[in-house]
Design a protein around this nucleic acid. Structure first.
Lengths: 222, 222
DNA sequence: TAGATTGTTAATCGATTAACAATC
DNA sequence: TAGATTGTTAATCGATTAACAATC
């Protein structure tokens, strides 16, 4: 679901293709860190468990990035993918909720190296407000709207309890946030111009338990 | 990708359908907590932004759970979905890595109410070993194999740095783990009989930035 | 040059949707 | 009974794959 709501019809690229580009970028960055300078659609596909045809088809939506006979220059393709994904500048991100999860997000090193900086943290608990988390001062919830509007914040991570998540969402959206990564296990209602992604580990685990044989489980009877 | 590797051909149900069942279950549980007793494919679809036809088709793979004219009993459908997903007993889960993320996972309340219990935590940092995290004692990494084998652990969460994730995976798989939820931002290699799910917030954010207008971003030049 | 690999086309495959008879 | 909604079929839509001419 593109959910970009910009109303642009035209040769729109399938959202499922967009969703694979960050995976390609991650794999190429990894290859680069291993010292590799070139790769082929076949090699990249084997690394990811994806067919080489799919990789070539996906990339062909955006241009011609390879060379017959030799494949792709990794640094060049990394640059191109970053540009396509609007990662040529750093995105500043707000975190709402300074509990265990907010804490983990604030300290996660993986954001900065891949285009994102946790720049604001909000929490309703006054005992947390004013304290620093990895260089960011926790702000009170009543400062949320003013800060988001003033700074033009477009991206927020929701790390509050499920019971608060919709209310927080409504406030973020009203203040101008365009993209939300939601860690609360509920379905958020947002206007069509706002993007929401979900992170719910239980959904992922429940998907996997379908394939796990019952007879191998720990028997909790007595 | 089913990746269940059990080699069973037959009237296998599409993996994409399996992946939606936990979403349905979550929404139905939410409706139930709101006091609702019945729903229709139309109402559930509106709640989730999915067509009613898709919901009926998905459920039809497993049986007939509704009544013409009145729809679905929520408690009954919840029970059925839990049974299909093998959630009628509690799954015990191991966490590898007791950093900020491992800490957040150990303290997350959402697991227990939805079928999973964090029962073991491992870390290589000897200063963490022996300390309690939400009722679980952190064990040393060299106890991993023995514990996993003895307890028959089938599910593990990987919350270690990317540089350690493949090695940890290999050890988990060798010890008998069948399903892995990986929080490290690298592609794990596993045998075909082992399931891997990824949780990488940066991948989700990069997907969304594709749709964010460049001219609205904060300009970091100057 | 010979070998390798791209970008693209057409064919295949699979998933979603629309429609409706059945029936509560 | 009349209205509502299911489960299912067939049609549509979209995504993946196989194949290959072009060319590095």
């Amino acid at each position: 679901m593109p959910a970009n709501g910009n109303g642009v019809s035209a040769p729109s690229i399938p959202d499922i293709v967009i969703g694979r580009l960050p995976i390609y970028l991650r794999a190429l960055t990894y290859m680069s860190s291993e010292g590799k300078l070139t790769t082929s659609s076949n090699e990249l596909g084997e690394h990811l468990g994806i067919s080489s045809a799919q990789i070539r088809k996906d990339l062909s939506h955006f241009g011609e990035f390879g060379k017959q006979g030799t494949g792709y220059s990794i640094p060049y393709l990394v640059d191109q993918l970053k540009s396509i994904l609007n990662l040529d500048v750093e995105w500043r991100v707000a975190v709402v909720g300074a509990g265990f999860l907010g804490h983990a997000l604030a300290h996660y090193n993986g954001f900065l190296s891949r285009g994102f900086r946790i720049s604001w943290i909000f929490d309703s608990d006054t005992s947390k407000v004013g304290h620093e988390m990895n260089g960011v001062i926790v702000q009170a919830m009543n400062e949320l709207e003013e800060t988001i509007k003033r700074e033009g914040t477009q991206i927020a991570l929701i790390a509050v309890p499920a019971s608060m998540a919709q209310e927080v969402t409504d406030r973020l959206v009203a203040a101008g946030v365009q993209s939300i990564l939601n860690y609360a296990p509920i379905n958020l209602r947002v206007p069509p111009n706002v993007q929401v992604a979900h992170s719910d580990p239980v959904v992922q685990l429940q998907h996997m338990t379908y394939y796990l044989a019952q007879d191998q489980r720990v028997d909790t009877r007595e």
